[in-house]
């Protein structure tokens, strides 16, 4: 297998790695790529900061069932004649 990868593939592995879905071999190739590619180093650094920001923020989403319920009720309310 080739150790050299294109930037596109490096960024793809980097994205996957933010979700712990990159394989060991993908991580090796990514890190090797980063040794000589400044653009991807920048992308990776930014990407990691973004992941950290998400973790730190403790943001949450509302459950889907709740959203659907409210949407339906709003729809009903809107279709009522004024």
């Amino acid at each position: 297998m080739n150790l050299f990868i294109k930037c596109e593939e490096a960024n793809h592995s980097c994205d996957k790695n933010q979700y712990k879905e990159a394989s060991f071999w993908e991580i090796i190739k990514l890190n090797f790529h980063l040794i000589y590619c400044a653009a991807c180093r920048k992308y990776t650094a930014r990407n990691m900061k973004l992941t950290r920001a998400f973790k730190k923020s403790n943001i949450q989403t509302l459950p889907d069932s709740y959203k659907r319920d409210i949407k339906e009720r709003l729809q009903k309310e809107m279709s009522k004649p004024e």
Binding site: T61, L62, K67, I70, K71, L74, M78
Partner: peptide, 10 residues
């Protein structure tokens, strides 16, 4: 109002 829930509820 149709898009309120999707856009702003979170």
């Amino acid at each position: 109002p149709e898009v309120w829930v999707d856009r702003y509820s979170d």
